[in-house]
Structures are given as structure tokens and as C-alpha cells.
Design a binder for these strands. Structure first.
Length: 280
DNA sequence: CGGCGCACCTGAGTGC
DNA sequence: TGCACTCAGGTGCGCC
């Protein structure tokens, strides 16, 4: 569900409210998310601590505590993280609650339970974060995200470029919606094997990616069925989607009907006329 | 190592 | 109204 823009919108929504708040009490459901919720660590490393800040790496939110422990939250397909009045009723599928010292409660709701909650204890946080980050690829909104870097990452690989963009070990934060949109913007067919892309095409991808992601963040993310920002408001970028879930609708550039296919087990949309294997 | 299929879950939508 | 079926924004495992 949430991809980089939705996770970033969540982070930015929480940022004005979390730093300097103390976590008064932590509670959690007994349901297993992707992993069991680490109750003992939450009680020991998070409860009672002050929140320093909230960062994002790939699609993970990193809540940094004053003792240097880190609460790591992934929203999976249906996760939402938001602040609520502490005495408001909890909802079905609320799995984690952090009561803050201003009578607000940070709550994680996740109906499908593909999300995750982990804690890096203060003593090992540094090492665990380094190991974690080492498994993740380039951040699309950071300086190193260049055509040249992408080209280098793809050398020796033959996977379809869409799968490459969605492979978190190479590129962080891009999921199915934005992979489709980025390749449309770059005018590249999603099935093109990465070894066939030339340097101009990598530049097109490197340029289109942050453009699309920033536009989505600005619009508050995409609310397809259930994404809500931390304020409980939906996003509006779905109104700007040009190929995702638009089978048969006219391409915004050439009016050809958008086509649907499957790649890596994920539904894939593209314009058969604007996105050809051999561009330029 | 690379790439694929599949499993993990609930809920919304569709068609009969 | 109800039932059966399909599909969904992610990730990581086992397997070839």
C-alpha cells in the first residue's frame, strides 16, 4: 500500500507533533503482524523515553528515542499511523498504541497485517541500523540518485526495468503505483530488460522518479482504497495517475488505450505507443 | 547469484 | 441478501 510518498506524507504529518514528547505507556494487540510485536523491547526501550525525531528510509519509518533506541514501523499494504485523542475509542485493527504526555496517542492500524513493528535496542541500534540500511538501495530523493548510479546498479542484470525499480535492494521506496507512473513519464516499456537500456534512458528514469514522487508527496499521496495520512486526510495524487489502473483509458499523450499486462506477479499498465522497448 | 512463484491477511468489489 | 470469487499500495522465503 503505502509507497515512498505515502510513508513520507505520514512522516511529515507527524513531525510537528512528536519531537520532545515523552512516551508514557505502550500497548499492543496480541495479533502477529509480519513478525510478532516485540512487547518486551517496547516496554524496556521505548516506554518512558522521549521522542527525538522521526525519519524515513525506503518505506520504513524510524522513530528515534532519546536513549538512541529506534522504533521501526513498516505500513505494509494497509497500515496507517496517526495521532488520536487518548480517550477516543480504539478501532478494529489498531495494533500498537503509544500514549504520549500530551494526552494524544500514536496508533498503528493495519487490517491486513503485512506491516511490521521492530525495536532496535539502544545498545545495538547503531549496528542494526547499518545492517538494515546496507540491504536497501538508492534513495530516490537523495543526491546519489543519478542515471549513472542506476546504470551501474543494473550492470549484469536482465530483469525487466519495472521489477528493477521495485527491487528494494537496488532502489528504495518504489512500489507498483509509482513504478508504472515513472516508466510512463520516462517513456520506457516496463518489460524492457535493464541491460538493454541506454544511458539516456537511465537519465530519463533518474529525472522522472523524483519528479513523480515529489508531486505525489505534494498531493498528499495516493488514496486508492484506504491510505490516510497521519491527520486522517486522504491524498489526491490518484487524480493525477496517468497509467495505473487505467486499462482502456486514453493515454494522456497520444490517446492510445492504456494496456494491462503482468510482470513479476504484479499488474502493470503502460501506453503501447509511447512506451516502446527501443526508445529514442 | 538471479529470477520466479507463493504465502502471509482482510476487505472491497463484482457477478450470479 | 448472500455467496463465491477476484483483486489490492509489500516483503521475503524457498526453489529452480
Amino acid at each position: 500500500m503505502p509507497e515512498l510518498p505515502e510513508v513520507e506524507v505520514t512522516r511529515q504529518g507527524l513531525l510537528p507533533h512528536l519531537p520532545d514528547r515523552r512516551v508514557v505507556r505502550v500497548s499492543w494487540s496480541d495479533k502477529t503482524l509480519r513478525f510478532p510485536i516485540p512487547g518486551e523491547l517496547l516496554a524496556r526501550e521505548v516506554s518512558g523515553q522521549r521522542i527525538e525525531t522521526i525519519d524515513r528510509r525506503a518505506k520504513y519509518l524510524l522513530v528515534r528515542m532519546s536513549n538512541r533506541a529506534v522504533l521501526v514501523i513498516h505500513l505494509g499494504m494497509t497500515g496507517r499511523l496517526g495521532l488520536f485523542s487518548a480517550n477516543s475509542p480504539r478501532e478494529r485493527h489498531d495494533h500498537l498504541h503509544l500514549l504520549l504526555d500530551n494526552d494524544l496517542e500514536l496508533r498503528l492500524n493495519d487490517s491486513r497485517r503485512f506491516g511490521s513493528v521492530e525495536v532496535w535496542p539502544e545498545k545495538q541500534a547503531r549496528e542494526m541500523e547499518d545492517n538494515f540500511s546496507a540491504t536497501l538501495g538508492l534513495e530516490p530523493l537523495e543526491r546519489g540518485f543519478t542515471g549513472e548510479a542506476l546504470h551501474r546498479l543494473a550492470t549484469g542484470k536482465r530483469q525487466p526495468v519495472k521489477n528493477f525499480l521495485m527491487d528494494s535492494r537496488r532502489v528504495a521506496g518504489i512500489g507498483n503505483i509509482y513504478a508504472n507512473e515513472i516508466l510512463f513519464a520516462a517513456r520506457i516499456h516496463p518489460a524492457t530488460p535493464v541491460n538493454l537500456l541506454n544511458r539516456i534512458q537511465w537519465e530519463q528514469i533518474a529525472n522522472a522518479t523524483p519528479e513523480i514522487l515529489q508531486a505525489a508527496i505534494k498531493a498528499g499521496g495516493s488514496t486508492i482504497s484506504d491510505f490516510l495520512g497521519s491527520s486522517g486526510k486522504p491524498g489526491y495524487f490518484q487524480l493525477q495517475l496517468r497509467v495505473y489502473d487505467r486499462t482502456g483509458k486514453p493515454c494522456p499523450c497520444c490517446r492510445s488505450p492504456i494496456e494491462k499486462t503482468e510482470l513479476g506477479g504484479r499488474t502493470t499498465w503502460f501506453c503501447p505507443s509511447c512506451q516502446r522497448h527501443k526508445a529514442i
